[in-house]
Simulated assay, not measured.
Amino acid sequence: MQPTARGYPVIYVHGLMLLMVVLVASSFPVGAAITDGMPPEVMMLIRFVLAAILFLPYVLLKHGRRLPSRGKLLQYAVLSIPLVVFFWCMFAALRHTSALNTGAIYTMVPAITAVFLWLIHREATPGRRAMGLLAGTLGAIWIVFRGDLEALLGFDFNRGDWLFLLGCLFMGAYNPLIKKFYSGEPMEVMTFWVISIGSVWLLLLSLPALDEIAWGQVRGGVYLGVLYLALFTTLVTFFLLQFGTVALGPTQVASYGFLTPLFVMLIELVRGSEVFEWILLPGILLVILAMLLVQREGIAAGNPNKSVKTTTLACRSR
């Protein structure tokens, strides 16, 4: 069995990448199940604070108590804005649309990122990857509109779809902004401060609602759901993303994001929240094609071990 650059079997690393996609995909059904439990900004505040607390021991043990400069803190504050907007839009959108729709729209983030990379850095997208981004975007649109040509031509998004698309536009700016601001610091340090400062923004947004929440009457499943999101779809996926990016390269790892709606659908079918419709099959095949095209582009590039600066360009997975 051919080893990767880090000496691990290829099938082992790809298996971890599939696990990462399953965890990311699970955030949509979990979010849909708990979104009515609290205001979106309050749930995101709890999630970000928990994630920062969980990150803190690792950052302290590995890097000590070293504070960033004022300039870096300002950059981290700017970087936190797309994440805060994205996650708020996600939870607010899930009150009006399905987990499958949000999972499908999420696959548009790489294409949106490519547009921002060109606008900010004038960085062109290689041909095979561009074809993959186009196929993934078309597949996502097909899934959202359930193959309904009339709805597609009228671009009949519901309120939740539009709201989550807005969040994805902000998320698409995240990686280009990382490329602009990154100066060689460990990614776990950057992630910790981005999440921590994001918690401050969310606290400011949540202040009007905090006194109105009857905390004792919030069902336990809501707290468990937020804990799950903080632990598994934030902390665990961060380390899986870092591991996979070093072992396989950022392009191959980013391509797994196209499988998100497929795993959202499988989770929803198991939960009984969705019924499989054959009309979705062309969209599913397009997102799988998108993944394969981008994977091949990564393999053709040779995927040498990248610097941390390059690895940050992998698709953000939270």
Rank of each mutant, 00 (worst) to 15 (best):
G249M: 08
V13A: 11
F239R: 10
F145W: 06
G136M: 02
G221S: 11
L94P: 10
W118L: 14
G147A: 08
T97S: 13
A140G: 15
G154Q: 09
V275E: 09
G31H: 06
P186I: 11
T191A: 14
S307A: 13
G127P: 00
T237W: 02
F87L: 10
E123N: 01
L240F: 07
I120M: 14
D156C: 00
L45V: 05
P304E: 07
M44V: 05
L313G: 11
I143C: 08
V275K: 11
Y106Q: 10
F155W: 14
I120K: 05
G37M: 04
V294C: 02
I299S: 10
V13Y: 04
N175Y: 01
G221C: 00
H14Q: 06
A140C: 02
A51S: 15
F192S: 01
A151E: 06
L54R: 04
W215I: 08
M90C: 06
G71A: 12
E268L: 07
L204H: 09
P82H: 06
V218M: 09
M1R: 10
S196P: 01
T245Q: 13
K180T: 14
E41Q: 15
A93G: 09
N175W: 00
A151Y: 00
E268M: 13
F258N: 14
M187G: 02
G136Q: 03
Y182P: 06
T237I: 14
T234Y: 06
F145R: 03
T4I: 10
S255I: 02
V30P: 02
I53S: 07
E41W: 11
H96W: 12
V85C: 01
L153S: 13
L119Q: 03
L210E: 04
G37F: 05
G103Q: 08
L203M: 10
V10M: 14
R6A: 11
M108F: 03
V200W: 05
E212I: 03
M291N: 13
I143N: 05
V236E: 02
V22R: 03
L177W: 08
H121W: 03
D148H: 08
A32R: 15
L262T: 13
M171H: 06
S69I: 07
G37T: 04
D161G: 01
L23G: 08
F258E: 00
A5H: 12
I267T: 09
A300W: 04
F91K: 06
Y228C: 05
W118A: 11
G139H: 04
M1F: 04
G7M: 08
L18V: 15
T260S: 05
M190T: 13
T311G: 15
A77S: 15
L117Q: 03
L83Q: 06
T260K: 07
A104M: 09
A5W: 08
A25E: 01
G147H: 10
L61C: 07
P39L: 02
P9R: 11
L241D: 05
L269T: 11
A99N: 04
G103E: 07
P250I: 02
R70Q: 12
F145E: 08
G298D: 01
L23M: 13
A77E: 04
M108N: 00
L23K: 10
